[in-house]
């Protein structure tokens, strides 16, 4: 009897619709977020994460309304990320029904924002999102740095040191995405995950690269993740969350079945 490892379907939302770029190019419409969230809830998802990729303020309003809708019908934890820059943004999302918010670039521009957010709302609802890319060469020791703007802009910040710093600032959880793997379906960067999970005490969600069920298992077993996040393998009916949990359970991982 112990804590179950979590499976978290991730929904990219643009103007109130679930979308998913396949390798960053064609954005396929994956449906109405309320319907998609309900489907994952029924399949036994442990949480749901929405990443709001909307750039307009009208679209933000639509997202808030969507979170309200989902929260009144789906009774598992909801995380909302994308465009969370101010304490007020967090309050708005929590009031709409989100349980946690994911903070990404705002933390890089102003690390104190993470402290401020944790003081105001508690660490339990602050997820720190880290987009990391490997920068070391083939015969060099592993090194990853933080990138922003979907992996295009380097910051020079060491990803592992950043993870430790954000833990010290009060973040309740880390969402670590490998920008090298995101969209490639070649599995998590488990070296990166292991490096971070062995250095922090807070839970780490592995993200970026899931193409098959074994990748989820490896994220837990090799990467040391407490939770695994995936999008496209669930969106287009390749696998259900239930199948993913069974695959994990068959390999000795404790899950909520």
């Amino acid at each position: 009897m112990s804590l179950a490892k979590r499976i978290i379907p991730c929904l990219d939302v643009d103007n109130g619709r679930v979308v998913k770029g396949v390798q960053f190019v064609d954005i396929r419409d994956a449906g109405n977020p309320v319907e998609v969230a309900k489907r994952y809830d029924e399949q036994g998802a442990d949480e749901i994460t929405f990443l709001d990729i909307t750039a307009t303020s009208d679209g933000r309003g639509t997202t808030i309304h969507m979170v309200e809708e989902v929260a009144s019908q789906v009774f598992i934890p909801l995380t909302v990320g994308g465009g969370i820059r101010k304490v007020e943004d967090i309050r708005t999302m929590l009031n709409a029904g989100a349980d946690k918010v994911a903070i990404n670039s705002a933390a890089i521009y102003n690390p104190e924002f993470v402290k401020e957010a944790c003081d105001a709302f508690g660490s339990q609802c602050i997820v720190l999102a880290i987009d990391a890319k490997k920068v070391s060469g083939e015969n060099e020791p592993n090194k990853w740095e933080i990138f922003t703007h979907g992996g295009r802009k380097e910051t020079g910040i060491d990803a592992v040191e950043w993870a430790e710093r954000m833990e010290a600032y009060g973040a309740g959880e880390l969402l670590v995405t490998s920008m090298d793997r995101d969209g490639t379906k070649s599995g998590f960067d488990n070296e990166l995950m292991k490096e971070i999970t062995s250095r922090v005490r807070i839970p780490v969600i592995a993200s970026g690269g899931v193409g098959k069920l074994q990748d989820l298992v490896d994220g837990v077993k090799e990467g040391g993740a407490e939770a695994v996040l995936a999008a496209s393998i669930f969106h287009f009916g390749e696998h259900t969350v239930q199948e993913a949990k069974q695959a994990m359970a068959e390999q000795g991982i404790e899950v909520r079945l």
């Binding site: 009897m1 112990s2 804590l3 179950a4 490892k5 979590r6 442990d46 660490s123 339990q124 309740g172 959880e173 005490r201 807070i202 839970p203 407490e226 939770a227 909520r256």
Partner: peptide, 13 residues
């Protein structure tokens, strides 16, 4: 090996 906070789905006996 255990994480803190205790976050996620656990059994209630």
């Amino acid at each position: 090996e255990l994480k803190m906070p205790h976050m996620g789905w656990n059994q209630i006996h």
